[in-house]
Nucleic acid binder design. Structure first.
Lengths: 197, 197
DNA sequence: CACAATATTGAGCGATCGTTCAAGATCTTT
DNA sequence: AAAGATCTTGAACGATCGCTCAATATTGTG
């Protein structure tokens, strides 16, 4: 070894993530990335191989950040269900005002990727499955904690949360109606979650 | 007038719609369009002005088709709520096996368009508002027909249908789990729609 | 401090992008 | 059938795309 990279990989991934999150995979050019990261193409290609390779790491980076946010929301509330609601509120209405896009990057990628990028598409699907599994794990913990009946179908409920979250984010981008979204969140968590969803 | 266009505009719009629906706006090249329509660029640009101009007409074409499908579903069932459920089943699971994409073209466009194409984005939003309004109109008719209580908040319910439909279509693309989607549709229409959503 | 190894630089590659337009083909009108 | 208007054709424009690579700068090692 004789020379080491001067840029911070995580920092570059963060900047690339914000860019891809805002513009999407296809509409983001490698020159956009060069400008956002202040790197020359040679450095980017040495570190990530290709635009697709960078995007794949961006997907993982984004998913890990999301998982961390969810964990913090759960830990910051007294109950697990309250933590899940806090996560919905934070993601849809909350603090991260500087989020580049109303939509989840994974869903946005699921939308624009096709058979032309099979590896990125399957990776996106895997990461979305992981989100649903995370929801289910927390719901099972809520059952264990007595917040939900022991008969709760946590798999079905996790699916419902996933569907609702995706739908609400899309609705927010379509309408910008924050009050309506807030009402729908509260409605979702106020009623008996078990049988009605 | 001395010469008339030899291609059928609706037919070309249909082919372009399938193409954009499958690949999205950015990933569809004008040469893709030329190949799919068997038209030379001059003819396309004389008829539609630009790629964006064609896409704008495609959005309208798609939305009109969707409205017609919904109308037929409603008319084909005994009750309006049954018709809405039939529309959900048809759109998500149903006959159009040759649909180019699980997602709604409007939602897909809402996802990939940004400030770089403001006119297309606002047009997409308008067409999505129109879908929700159509849902609300049918729900009001359901109230009039006694299928729903007179106290029903049809606006809120139409929003819920919109959110659910978008979420379910995304979920289907993510997971390909048709049985789970079928269960969620039935669940949505089996329970008392009014207060629980 | 000299050397070897790695990183950075930026010009520029071939391919493809959206789009244009002169030339030729085809139609309606007279 | 001649004239005039419109449509179709396909080559090609400039811009931009993802990406490469020889030249240069920078580092750790002996």
């Amino acid at each position: 070894m004789a020379n080491t990279a001067k840029f911070d990989r995580q920092e570059v991934l963060g900047k690339a993530t914000r860019l891809f999150w805002r513009k999407g995979f296809h509409a983001t050019s490698t020159r956009d990335i060069q400008q956002a990261t202040s790197l020359r193409p040679g450095s980017i290609y040495a570190a990530f191989g290709s635009k697709s390779g960078l995007f794949k790491e961006v997907l993982a980076f984004y998913a890990q950040n999301g998982a961390e946010t969810l964990r913090q929301c759960i830990e910051g509330e007294k109950t697990i269900l309250g933590g899940l609601q806090a996560f919905f509120r934070y993601t849809l209405l909350g603090g991260n005002k500087d989020a580049p896009n109303e939509l989840c990057l994974l869903v946005k990628s699921l939308s624009e990727l096709d058979e032309g990028e099979p590896e990125l598409l399957s990776e996106t699907r895997s990461l979305l499955v992981a989100v649903e599994n995370r929801f289910r794990n927390y719901l099972e913990a809520a059952v264990s904690a007595g917040e939900l009946p022991a008969t709760t179908d946590t798999s079905a409920l996790a699916r419902q949360l996933q569907v609702k979250l995706i739908g609400l984010r899309s609705y927010l981008r379509a309408s910008s109606d924050r009050k309506a979204v807030e009402r729908m969140i509260d409605n979702l968590f106020e009623m008996p979650l078990v049988q009605s969803h």
